[in-house]
């Protein structure tokens, strides 16, 4: 039997997932990492993207916009800033946010606004790519 690792995904507002998986793939600021059981302790910031949990052939996706990852040998904790079940993502909202951000980028006024818009845009793109991936696999 394959070894499993316990995974908790929580955001400040609610608990999103608690259960086990064989592999957890998390988008870190430095790149995507896959975590198997008995991983050495790790502490790292997460960038916006999708967290994937794999159990055999079954895969689950969660969208996170940022946060912190803690790994202990048998427990993975994802402290997400906002995490929504990937299937629930509102595509229209993501597109609107992207357009809004692009509009702000187009006529940027201050450095701060620009940075904010860029962050918003990155987030919307990540949401959209998650949606697209889910569509392709044909399971929402």
């Amino acid at each position: 039997m394959a070894m499993n690792i316990h995974v908790d995904i929580v955001s400040a507002q609610e608990e999103i997932f608690s259960g086990t998986a064989e592999v957890v793939v998390v988008p870190l600021v430095t790149g995507e990492v896959g975590i198997y059981p008995r991983h050495t302790p790790l502490l790292a910031p997460i960038k916006s993207g999708e967290v994937r949990l794999r159990n055999g052939d079954d895969e689950q996706f969660f969208y996170v916009s940022g946060g912190i990852l803690e790994v202990q040998p048998h427990v993975v904790t994802v402290l997400a800033d906002t995490a929504i079940r990937a299937g629930d993502l509102d595509e229209a909202q993501a597109v609107a946010a992207k357009e809004r951000a692009e509009k702000i980028m187009a006529n940027k006024k201050t450095e701060v606004d620009y940075a904010k818009a860029q962050a918003e845009l990155a987030e919307a793109m990540a949401q959209l790519s998650t949606i697209a991936k889910i569509r392709k696999r044909g399971k929402t």
């Binding site: 870190l28 600021v29 430095t30 990492v33 050495t40 302790p41 790790l42 502490l43 790292a44 910031p45 912190i68 402290l79």
Partner: peptide, 20 residues
């Protein structure tokens, strides 16, 4: 005696974590 691996470096990660 153990410590985390910090990615990319300890100061930033701890700062992030503490603020949160």
């Amino acid at each position: 005696y153990w410590d985390y691996i910090y990615e990319p470096d300890a100061k930033d990660v701890l700062n992030d974590l503490m603020t949160r």
